Amino acid sequence: MKVLKRGLDLERFFASVRQADWRVLLLDYDGTLAPFQAERDKAFPYDGVPQLLNRLIEAGDTRVILISGRQISDLLPLLGLKRLPQIWGSHGWERLKPDGAYEAAQPSRRARQALTEAYAWAQAQGWQAWAERKPGSLALHLRGLAPHDMSEIRRRARQGWSALAAKAGLTLAEFDGGLELRAPGHDKGSAVRTVLAEIGPDAALAYLGDDLTDEDAFRAIKRHGLAVLVRRELRPTAADLWLKPPDELLEFLSRWPAAAGGER
């Protein structure tokens, strides 16, 4: 573990977890709880992660929330949890509550039309196997390709989608292993802000994520909780703490229930 924020004291943070009336652990999935896989339907969690999350959920003293770029329907078969926590999917465009209630926002008509046109263009390039349509975005998953091929496809996609993005107010965003065309309105940061508004000011919180898409969440949780970067190599980030998976991730997840269940 490496502290990135000057003045951060992890012992003091876990003491605040123990003393808090409310605890919330917000977690990205791919690259954070699970290693990346070229075959995305085989991206199962690191060994030990489901057991630790099951322990937290069963204890009931921590609200566990997953916030993923994946669609919720793609994420559910991978988790291996006895009870589902609250899940935000598609960068905040979808929400599944523990009671099974499902909510999905919808981008503007102009954005939807632009995403449809962008998907048709990707199909014309022969990229349909890599293109994924989501409620508020279109992603190109290029993991597993040779670096030169990945770079060339990214370049061509940016070139082909840039006019559509400008016309409809969409953004082109890199992520680890691909490129995504996104409608405005929701991201992981907006999901975190919604959670913060619902739980009130007196909770102990942490957000764990790995990718550039998690930076929105890191910025949203600042001044409210701990932002934790989980990846093998350090990169520029707004996070407060850096963990290398899987060992340091498992250590952090193990410390949380120990603190939450301690005497106050």
Rank of each mutant, 00 (worst) to 15 (best):
A258R: 15
L138V: 07
T62C: 12
A34W: 01
F44K: 06
E198C: 05
L56W: 10
G225H: 03
W127F: 01
R133G: 00
E248G: 07
H141P: 05
G92Q: 03
P77D: 04
D202Q: 10
L243W: 07
G261Q: 12
L140K: 00
I65R: 12
D9H: 07
L79G: 00
G178W: 04
G200H: 06
H141F: 09
I57Y: 03
D176V: 13
N54H: 05
G69L: 00
K244T: 15
P77T: 08
A139E: 05
E233M: 02
I199A: 03
D9I: 11
K97W: 07
Y207T: 05
R143H: 10
D30K: 07
L78S: 03
S90D: 08
L8W: 04
A206C: 10
A104C: 15
W161I: 00
E180K: 00
S73Q: 14
G200N: 10
A166Y: 01
Q123H: 07
P236S: 12
A260C: 06
P85E: 00
R143K: 13
D47H: 13
A20V: 06
K82E: 14
L234T: 13
M1N: 09
L241Q: 07
D176S: 13
F13D: 03
Q113L: 15
W130P: 07
A238C: 10
Y29V: 02
D211Q: 02
R143M: 11
R156E: 14
A15C: 11
W242N: 09
H91Y: 11
D149C: 10
A168E: 03
A139D: 03
P236R: 12
D99K: 04
W161K: 00
A20F: 03
D99M: 04
D30N: 10
